[in-house]
Design a protein around this nucleic acid. Structure first.
Lengths: 206, 206
DNA sequence: TGAACTATAAACTGATCAGTTCATTTTCGG
DNA sequence: CCGAAAATGAACTGATCAGTTTATAGTTCA
């Protein structure tokens, strides 16, 4: 029973078309910057049709954010081999996260959510649940299992997952968000990825 | 010769008054949310006067952000005793950072900068230079000295400072930014503060 | 005191934009 | 192929807001 948080979104023939068009415009223009006329044009749909699906712009954004975050998170999970050694799993996870944070979508989603959450609480909850929260829960689960196997020693698994998540943002994420730098070499990425794994293992390794 | 980035800000009798008024409104309303009329009203100044100081709204915000970030950073530095043992200095620094991130000003400044930096590059640079960048440089300097004294072992001091900075945001910052939680107990803060220090020392301690 | 500078209030411009309305056309299942 | 449901487009409402203008009033200092 997949439903949007405020249960007011009607489905129909051109639903996906609207969401896809909105995705593009939000990604390029941000939330405030994207006009509903732009979105309707980009989706090849009339404004009236758009409003027949989504009673307002916020709910449309919510749907876009929810769908894409979940898609990305699921893809990442399916591609990580959780049966590898801890260090290897952490490296894979960190690699995904760094790429996500530095991607256009990751950046813009972060920007929009950070700026709109204060005025739009529902968005914050959805974003957290289908983004950072989801990733951290899955990581915490893995850390718990690895601890049981004696490979590491983590007591507060959710917190450790949050720390790891945060470590993956060191330096580069701050720089990209502040607009100081937009392109990053593999060496720069590796420094963050390996730095996060090393630090995590130094603290929680057996 | 401290001048605003775009060198177009005129000083005058009511300069401080304008900046203070703007500070209040931006803090409560965000950048887009704050209308220039609101700001003029809050500053007890006519709109024309405001525009005689600041040619546009962005430059006004830039001035507000610059001034307040620097003020907060300087205050923090002056209150931390850098002659203490590494662990103690880190704990003090982490405490400040956690409080800052969770404060109204810290939150709102973060929100505004994140959302506006993409369209307003000058802001990103100013924010970084007088916020995270400043803190990280000072921390890096300290880490270098402590390494020389043999108390810790850090080779890339700027990167380590960035990691520490990021660790102080674990869990709580994400939650506050997403609007999941607004009040935090001392125990919650301490968990992050101590968690950051422990992890840092596990990795870089001798 | 008086000239030069600074500030004021209030109206105005011009633009943007979310959301609505409605008469018309398209689509599609039965 | 018919009729109901869905979609269209284009005009419209109502509101907000950055930035300008202007005629007037207050401040400063020589």
């Amino acid at each position: 029973m997949k439903e949007t948080a405020l249960q007011v979104v009607r489905k129909g023939r051109k639903f996906e078309q609207v969401v896809d068009g909105a995705w593009k415009v939000f990604l390029n223009e941000g939330f405030e910057g994207a006009s509903v006329d732009d979105i309707a044009r980009s989706a090849n749909v009339s404004k009236a049709t758009l409003y027949s699906y989504f009673p307002d712009k916020r709910l449309l954004f919510l749907e876009v954010a929810r769908a894409e975050c979940q898609r990305q998170a699921n893809q990442a999970f399916s591609e990580i081999d959780f049966s590898c050694a801890v260090q290897e799993v952490l490296t894979q996870a960190a690699t995904r996260m760094v790429y996500f944070f530095l991607s256009d979508f990751g950046q813009q989603m972060f920007r929009i959510c950070v700026s709109e959450c204060a005025r739009f609480p529902e968005l914050g909850k959805e974003f957290f649940a289908s983004g950072p929260g989801l990733v951290q829960s899955r990581m915490a689960e893995f850390l718990g299992e690895a601890t049981k196997r004696g490979e590491i020693n983590v007591t507060d698994t959710m917190f450790a997952a949050a720390q790891f998540h945060e470590l993956c943002k060191a330096d580069l994420h701050t720089r990209v968000i502040c607009g100081l730098q937009t392109q990053f070499t593999q060496a720069e990425r590796d420094r963050v990825i390996n730095g996060a794994v090393e630090m995590f293992m130094a603290r929680y390794g057996v």
